[in-house]
Amino acid sequence: QPKKFCDYCKCWIADNRPSVEFHERGKNHKENVAKR
């Protein structure tokens, strides 16, 4: 299972659409993006 690194959250997520979309909709991710 390939992994994708989220540069905002400094974490690895599964590299498939549902996982990536779920991660990017998450509160934690949105806060990290807003902080940039």
Rank of each mutant, 00 (worst) to 15 (best):
E24T: 02
H29D: 00
W12K: 02
A34K: 10
A34E: 12
F22M: 15
D7W: 01
Q1S: 01
V20M: 12
F5S: 03
R36C: 13
P2R: 13
V33S: 09
Q1M: 07
N32M: 07
D15Q: 06
N28L: 13
H23L: 00
H29Y: 01
A34P: 05
V20I: 06
Y8K: 05
K4P: 00
V33M: 11
E31W: 00
A14T: 11
R36L: 15
K35M: 10
S19Y: 03
V20A: 13
K10A: 09
E24K: 08
W12M: 14
R17A: 13
W12F: 08
P18L: 07
P2S: 14
R25M: 14
V20C: 02
C6M: 01
E21N: 05
F22K: 09
D7Q: 10
C11K: 11
K4F: 08
V33A: 12
F5L: 11
E24D: 04
D7S: 09
Q1V: 06
K3W: 00
I13Q: 02
K10D: 14
E21R: 11
Q1K: 00
E24S: 07
K4I: 07
K27R: 11
V20R: 07
K4W: 00
F5D: 02
D15H: 04
R36P: 15
N16F: 09
H29E: 05
E21F: 04
R17T: 12
H23E: 02
E24M: 03
E21Q: 11
W12P: 15
F22L: 13
D7G: 08
R17D: 14
P2E: 14
F22V: 14
K35T: 11
K30E: 13
Y8I: 09
C6V: 01
R17Y: 07
K30V: 12
I13W: 02
F5C: 02
V20H: 12
A34T: 13
K10S: 09
R36A: 13
K27C: 05
C11D: 15
S19E: 06
H29F: 00
D7K: 06
V20T: 08
N32P: 03
Q1P: 12
S19I: 01
K3T: 06
R17N: 12
E21C: 04
K4T: 12
F5Q: 05
R25I: 06
K30M: 08
E24P: 00
C9W: 00
E21V: 06
H23K: 04
E31N: 05
H29P: 00
H23A: 01
R17G: 12
F22Y: 07
H29S: 02
E24Q: 03
D15P: 08
G26I: 00
V33K: 06
H29R: 01
N16T: 15
F5Y: 10
N32Y: 06
P18F: 04
V33E: 13
K30L: 11
E21P: 03
G26V: 08
F5I: 04
K3V: 06
K27V: 09
C11P: 03
C6A: 03
R25V: 12
F22R: 11
Q1W: 00
E24A: 05
Q1L: 01
N28F: 14
K4N: 07
E21Y: 00
I13H: 04
A14G: 06
K30F: 05
K30R: 13
R25N: 07
Y8C: 06
C9T: 01
G26C: 08
K4M: 14
F5V: 02
H29V: 05
I13C: 04
A14R: 04
N32H: 08
K10Q: 09
E21D: 09
F22S: 12
K27E: 13
P18H: 09
C11T: 14
P2M: 15
K3L: 08
W12D: 07
E24G: 04
G26M: 14
G26K: 06
N28M: 15
Y8V: 06
K27W: 07
K35C: 00
Q1I: 15
A14P: 08
K10E: 09
N16Y: 11
P2Q: 15
C6D: 00
V33W: 06
C6W: 00
C9S: 10
S19W: 01
D7T: 15
C11I: 12
P18M: 12
A34G: 12
P2Y: 08
A34C: 09
P2C: 00
K3E: 15
S19A: 11
C9D: 02
G26H: 14
K10G: 09
F22T: 15
K4V: 03
F22D: 14
R17H: 09
P18C: 10
V33R: 09
E21K: 13
V33Q: 08
K10I: 04
Q1E: 00
Y8S: 03
V20N: 12
C9L: 00
I13F: 14
R17L: 12
Y8D: 14
H23I: 00
E31K: 10
K10H: 12
K30W: 05
A14S: 05
R36T: 11
C11W: 02
H29Q: 01
W12S: 06
N32G: 11
K30T: 15
E21M: 05
C6Q: 04
N16M: 13
K30Y: 04
H23F: 01
H29L: 04
F22I: 05
I13Y: 15
K3H: 02
N16V: 09
P2K: 15
N32E: 15
H23N: 00
F22H: 09
P2D: 15
N28V: 12
E24C: 03
A34D: 15
K4E: 04
K10Y: 12
W12V: 06
C6E: 02
R36S: 12
H23Q: 02
N28G: 14
N28S: 12
E21H: 03
P18G: 08
C9R: 01
A14D: 07
R25D: 14
V20W: 08
K35Q: 10
N32R: 10
C11R: 11
E31S: 05
A14L: 02
K30H: 00
Y8G: 07
K35Y: 00
K3G: 11
C9H: 00
D15R: 05
H23G: 01
S19L: 03
D7L: 07
G26D: 13
I13G: 03
K10N: 09
D7P: 02
R17W: 04
K3F: 00
K35P: 12
A14W: 05
E24N: 09
R25F: 08
C9K: 00
H23V: 00
N32T: 09
D7R: 05
K3N: 01
K35W: 13
S19K: 04
W12A: 07
S19T: 11
A34S: 14
E31G: 09
K35N: 10
Q1C: 00
A34L: 07
N16P: 13
C6I: 03
Y8M: 13
W12I: 15
D15N: 06
I13L: 07
C11H: 05
R25E: 11
A34F: 04
C11V: 14
N16R: 09
N28A: 15
V33L: 07
K30A: 10
C6H: 02
C11A: 13
N16C: 15
C6L: 00
R25G: 13
C6F: 01
C11E: 12
C11Q: 15
